[in-house]
């Protein structure tokens, strides 16, 4: 078989697997930014926090990182509910979320990063799990398990969130609050409570995405910055608040980055998400599956 064709196929496969991971990273932003209009620019910081917690537990107790973050997701959910309450009292209620709210999350991003830096330093950290080393091979076709396992769990999580949003009462309330808050209030539901639940959910997904992140690559505290462009690019490209759109856009971004890394070199990959973001904003601001 042709060498370039091999490279091409493997780049596509790696891109799709990476895209599944990006969907897990971005789904929280699709909920908070896309549905609730809360520009949580600190979302990647919560992902890194999830990674470091998975790292500590994995190092001392040898528990699987994905399992750790799933078990800890109620704690992250509570953290998200607390964050939203703070945000609501300080900004949303007074109608100052546009400027002060943005600055607030930027401050949180910075505090989180520097605090992790002071605790863990700038060394790269990794975890141990049985599926991190091996690769399935079919001739020229490679399937690295360290990408494939996060991909499967991530797609499962995205489907679960979509089912929650469309099939349960609370989920439908979240969709309703994203469409018309006043109307929801008139139906007798409390929008603040619904938004707190939704924001909690978005932070809980960040923790799980953190486990995927540390499985896929070694991490250090400031690596979260690279994900700011990615999560917002995926959210905007998919169409604000659309969960199937998030999955589709994440896979497009993953394939585009994998191609760039294979054919131009990995140091160019961070520029891809920004290019996609700007192109989307300039050509089709509503995104692929936007309303």
């Amino acid at each position: 078989m042709d060498v370039t064709l091999n490279l091409l196929i493997n780049a596509i496969v790696a891109g799709i697997l990476l895209g599944g991971f990006y969907a897990a990273v971005s789904i929280g932003i699709s909920i908070s930014f896309g549905m609730l209009d809360i520009v949580n620019i600190a979302h990647p910081t919560f992902i890194i926090l999830g990674s470091f917690i998975a790292y500590i537990v994995n190092l001392h107790m040898g528990v699987d990182p994905i399992l750790v973050t799933f078990l800890l997701s109620p704690a992250f959910f509570a953290l998200g509910v607390g964050m939203y309450s703070w945000y609501y009292v300080a900004f949303e209620r007074r109608g100052r979320e546009a400027l002060s709210g943005l600055a607030f999350f930027f401050g949180i991003l910075f505090i989180g990063e520097v605090a992790l830096l002071l605790v863990f330093g700038v060394d790269y950290r990794t975890v141990n799990a049985p599926y991190i080393g091996p690769t399935l091979e079919w001739g020229a076709f490679n399937l690295p398990l360290r990408l494939f396992v996060p991909f499967l769990v991530s797609v499962g999580m995205v489907i679960a969130v979509q089912l929650f949003m469309t099939r349960t009462f609370t989920g439908r309330c979240i969709l309703a609050v994203s469409q018309n808050q006043m109307a929801l209030q008139l139906m007798g539901a409390n929008p603040q409570r619904i938004k707190a639940i939704a924001f909690g959910l978005s932070i809980a997904t960040a923790a799980v995405a953190g486990a995927f992140l540390i499985i896929i690559q070694p991490i250090e505290p400031s690596i979260g910055r690279e994900y700011i462009g990615r999560v917002f690019a995926v959210c905007v490209l998919g169409g604000m608040g659309s969960i199937p759109g998030t999955l589709l856009a994440a896979i497009i971004l993953g394939v585009a980055e994998s191609f760039t890394a294979t054919f131009y070199g990995p140091s160019w990959a961070p520029a891809v998400s920004f290019g996609i973001l700007l192109l989307t904003l300039a050509i089709r601001p509503a995104g692929l599956l936007g309303r």
Binding site: I41, E226, I228, G229, V236, W268, P270, A271, F274, L278
Partner: peptide, 15 residues
């Protein structure tokens, strides 16, 4: 969008 784009721009110019 301006806010997000400026942050992303800084990262891309860095790249």
């Amino acid at each position: 969008f301006f806010a997000i784009a400026t942050l992303a721009m800084a990262i891309v110019l860095h790249t």
